[in-house]
Design a protein around this nucleic acid. Structure first.
Length: 445
RNA sequence: CGGGCUGUGGCGCAGUCUGGUUAGCGCGUCCGUCUGGGGGACGGAAGGUCGUGAGUUCGAAUCUCGCCAGCCCGACCA
């Protein structure tokens, strides 16, 4: 993309409504625009990151064998009356009435609807296990939205639902989700710690929340800090192997890590003092096993191998896709702007032309731009006539992890400069070498 | 929803207390010249129903009342 033809309304000053860093930076970097309290438009740069995060979630769900579909944002009220949650949910649920005076709601989650889909089409244990998920906009009419996209009323969420014949199978689904989530967060450059949590309005006993440590987090967290060093890395997990998946989950959940909702001082005291940490965290996902809480009242039953009709065991599993942008920025920024991890960056690298209009510099930039695209990378070429300082400031603000700086001075020696946004380190090299290096960096991402 | 606060060009603000010609400033935008490796300089220009409605007054951004929107703290939540 050429910056001169893009839509990137960056701001030099911070709009007064924004308090926390992710909100300020998202506004300044021209990623979002508020349309009402807790409701945002996604401007091109923000939309790119949102789509990147979504893509990672889709890829990792596919790897775990989970199947995507898409349910509507508006749901009929009667489904929720069946489960009893229409009254239980309270004013946080946005209720709508159509022209025929039928009661609808803007879905805050989809357990009822997915259960309805399931019971309509599945009747035999032979069709299990089944895990369906979608990534769709949700609405929760928060009393007080805040922190920009982190605590909006409208938000994009991945929510998945597993249907299994018994508790053991459902717990395997639970574990599969935990591993696929850990892998998703790692690919986004985040360390998200699974913590034992409280179940809230979804219900169920078995539940973990995934927390990204950040000063601005909404939850107080208590943990053994050795948990932050755990990584899945490149290891290959066979999602069909119950024991292997369970072992990975055991590794990530055996150290003490809890939110204030489930915190146990006595158990926490057993953590060696040097590792005992109290901090704050941003919730970026939660998984639940809730047995037959919805299948029983809603009649989601299958015939088992003995010919008996039994309610299916279910769980649900969510990742806050739009919220993750805020969490990533909270975890990865400096005083000049955002620092995107390679996995979610809106563009792979910026090309900064220091002397727009100079024939040799322009030609070198065009060459780099074409060569990077030919390697399958998406560069953002700053071909505007801004001065160097302004271009650098914009690059730093929008946080592309790599910058190729091209100016007549370096070009005289056949060199461009490749700079890491994260470390600030620069290296001079030929344009060809810069392209090769970037291709190598993104090869494993 | 309780408490606190704010609405003035695209953004950040002053002016309001103490009412008075054409409502200012910085940034940004546009044009020109000089510049050119970390938000450059100079010259010129465009852009405002002062959130909104009613009232007080000779006169309202400024005073009064209502309404709307937004922000912060709390309770609530992913």
């Amino acid at each position: 993309m050429r910056l001169s033809r893009y839509f990137l309304p960056v701001l030099k000053e911070t709009p007064s409504e924004a308090q926390i860093v992710s909100h300020r930076l998202m506004l300044r970097a021209g990623m979002i625009k508020q349309q009402a309290a807790g409701i945002y438009s996604w401007l091109p740069l923000g939309y790119r990151v949102l789509r990147r995060i979504e893509a990672i979630v889709h890829e990792e769900q596919a790897r775990a064998g989970h199947i995507p579909l898409l349910m509507p944002t508006l749901q009929p009220a009667d489904l929720w009356q069946e489960s009893g949650r229409y009254d239980a949910y309270g004013p946080e649920m946005l209720r709508i009435r159509d022209r025929h005076k039928r009661d609808l709601l803007y879905g805050p989650t989809n357990e009822e609807m997915i259960t309805d889909i399931f019971r309509s089409h599945v009747s035999s244990y032979k069709d299990l296990p089944l895990t369906l998920y979608h990534i769709q906009w949700k609405f929760r009419d928060e009393i007080r939205p805040r922190f920009g996209i982190m605590r909006g009323r409208e938000f994009l969420m991945k929510d998945g639902y597993n249907f299994d014949i018994d508790k053991d199978a459902a717990l395997h689904a639970y574990n599969r989700h935990m591993v696929s989530y850990l892998r998703s967060y790692e690919r986004m450059g985040l360390t998200a710690i699974p913590m034992r949590a409280a179940s809230g309005p979804i219900g169920g006993d078995n539940t973990h929340e995934f927390l990204v440590l950040a000063q601005t987090g909404e939850s107080e967290v208590f943990y053994d800090d050795r948990v932050t060093g755990l990584k899945l890395g490149a290891r290959d997990v066979d999602y069909d192997d119950r024991d292997q998946v369970a072992a990975v989950c055991g590794e990530f959940t055996s150290l003490y890590a809890r939110t204030d909702e489930t915190h146990d001082e006595a158990a926490f005291a057993d953590v060696p003092e040097a590792h005992r940490k109290v901090g704050r965290g941003i919730e970026v996902g939660q998984i639940f096993y809730f047995a037959t809480k919805y299948s029983e009242p809603m009649g989601a039953v299958v015939v088992n191998d003995k010919g008996e009709r039994v309610p299916v065991h279910m769980g649900s599993h969510g990742i806050g896709v739009s919220r993750l942008l805020g969490a990533i920025i909270e975890a990865s920024h400096d005083d000049r702007g955002i620092i995107w991890p390679e996995g979610v960056t809106p563009f792979h690298a910026g090309i900064v032309n220091l002397r727009q209009g100079d024939a040799a510099t322009d030609a070198a930039c065009e060459g780099l731009y074409g060569a990077l695209k030919a390697r399958g990378l998406e560069p953002l070429y700053d071909d505007t006539s801004e001065r160097a300082g302004a271009k650098f400031a914009t690059q730093d603000l929008i946080g592309l992890p790599w910058r190729v700086t091209v100016g007549p001075r370096g070009l005289a020696a056949g060199k461009v400069e490749l700079t890491s946004r994260r470390t600030g380190e620069s290296e001079e090299m030929s344009p060809e070498a810069a392209v090769a290096r970037l291709a190598e960096i993104y090869d494993g991402v």
